[in-house]
């Protein structure tokens, strides 16, 4: 099975609050001097792709969009984990684009890559959490779509997947080609590359395509949507601490809950 995995580069979401700042001009997070990582669930998506390849063969291509200069190094990890090739759509404006706009560019890149059975993304990005890339890609590529997939099994020309749902899980039978967004699951913890994989990754092909070469897809979802401002809300709640030994604290809390008519 030929699989394309879309990876997004984000500022490490685990950075402490003191390192978090917004650039007023763009409304985006300040990236300068911050560590850049692959967005959380995108690594789970790559792991799913690699497991499918381990079981049934095929090729795994990773695809990303952003300023080439900062992307290549961070994404060697994906090649070291076992992806066969990498395509970077070099786009200095990449980090400022909304999901719908990015999805349109990624769809053009996927058409240029050509053959694929499956496209995987993370279920949401660690920064804007728009959750739009997978469904928009599916529409643009006329492929089936399932989001928030925690498990994938190949079954005779189709896939059987497990989707996280409000009420539990859905078992969904999906035709190929398909676009799936992947959620974390114990079955898709990202593997750690060994030293020899890291060395081998240096010889794997990396293609850099200028964003200008990607034909603009019609119907950009982000057209007519403007980011006016992004603010860090100030928290104003003042916490009242209940003092004393554990039993006293517990009794005080129970009394307060009763006073608030919560019991």
């Amino acid at each position: 099975m030929d699989i394309i995995v879309c990876l997004k580069q984000v500022v490490d979401p685990e950075l402490p609050q003191t390192e978090f700042a917004i650039e007023p001009a763009t409304g985006r997070q300040v990236r300068e001097g911050r560590p850049l990582v692959i967005s959380t669930y995108d690594e789970n998506a790559l792991e799913v792709a690699l497991q499918l390849k381990d079981r049934g063969g095929g090729k795994v291509t990773v695809l990303t969009l952003g300023p080439q200069a900062v992307i290549s190094d961070a994404f060697r990890l994906a090649l070291a984990m076992g992806a066969d090739e990498m395509v970077v759509v070099d786009d200095p404006r990449g980090p400022d684009r909304l999901g719908g706009e990015k999805a349109a560019i990624l769809a053009a890149a996927i058409r240029r890559i050509g053959r694929f059975d499956l496209v995987l993304t993370g279920c949401e990005s660690a920064d804007w959490t728009e959750r739009v890339v997978a469904p928009v890609l599916a529409e643009a590529l006329s492929a089936a779509c399932v989001t928030f997939v925690s498990r994938v099994e190949a079954a005779d020309g189709t896939l059987m997947v497990r989707r996280m749902a409000d009420e539990g899980f859905h078992r969904v039978e999906v035709r190929l080609p398909a676009v799936l967004s992947v959620a974390s699951d114990e079955s898709n913890r990202p593997r750690l590359p060994k030293l020899k994989d890291i060395l081998a990754a240096k010889r794997k092909p990396v293609h850099v395509w200028p964003v200008a070469d990607m034909p603009a897809a019609p119907g950009d979802l982000a057209a007519g949507v403007e980011v006016r401002e992004v603010v860090i809300p100030q928290r104003t709640t003042r916490c009242e601490f209940l003092e004393g030994e554990s039993a006293e604290q517990a009794a005080a809390l129970a009394q307060r809950l009763r006073d608030l008519k919560l019991l």
């Binding site: 917004i22 660690a126 860090i232 809300p233």
Partner: peptide, 18 residues
């Protein structure tokens, strides 16, 4: 919400349909 709830974004939508 954006950035894991760290920030709140305001977007203006002028196009229709939306």
């Amino acid at each position: 919400q954006t950035y894991g709830g760290r920030a709140l974004a305001t977007l203006v939508v002028t196009r229709r349909p939306a």
